[in-house]
Amino acid sequence: MTQQQSYNGYQEQEPPLPSAVPQATENAEMVRVEQAVKRFGDLLVLNNVSMTVKRGQVVVIIGPSGSGKTTLLRCINHLEKIDSGYIYVDGQLVGYRLVNGRLVEAREAEIAKMRAQIGFVFQRFNLFAHMTALENIIEAPVHVLGIPRDEAIAQAMELLRKVGLEEKAHVYPHKLSGGQQQRVAIARALAMRPKLMLFDEATSALDPELVGEVLKVMRQLAEEGMTMVVVTHEMGFARDVADHVIFMDHGVIVEEGPPEQIFDTPQNERTRNFLGLIAAD
């Protein structure tokens, strides 16, 4: 973490939030979603979803397939656009800006700059196939943040050590196992010094015996105080690591609360059914 300072400059250039924006987030809030609505054609994927993630918090979103949890996550860094509502990350409107009281889609550069501060881990890893693990990790720091190459390499090696893959630095993704690829992908996201990490079913594409090594890295991150939003089917992880659990179904947040409440005394019928189904597996 010795190089922290060089990246802070990047974050501090954020323009202040326009005062006219309704309910700007307090500083303690990392993510604020307000009445997000998202349609794919006729299908209502997000139906008036509101949620907040506090700084340093680990929020786990669970729910059946098609419940909208992945879409919600993707909207947070604008990989999907919401049709209405507001999403803020660290007090800043995501993907839009306010011009004369109206929301206008942000310029590409602004969106890119915002995304550079949000780590995203994909279900299918999406490592750059033509680059080694190390090259994958330094790519964005060098070409997006403009960090000197040797500095980026030093940092990348440190991150590879952290995820236990130092010896795989010069290996191409297709020679790595799924679990190793996902750990490299996490290191790649961390190399941007994100203030928020989003995990989209990061272990769903893995063979069962490889899930543990990825969850271990995620757990370690959570312990270090990283703000995380995690979409997962790993209920054990949710129960142990989450500060807050959100259960979604059919595009709405059905129930949310601390993990003990959601898992031990779920209030809602649908939550009970879902958890019952999972337990029956």
Partner: peptide, 8 residues
């Protein structure tokens, strides 16, 4: 997607 998510 991965490239965009990294701010490229």
């Amino acid at each position: 997607e991965a490239a965009r998510a990294l701010g490229m």
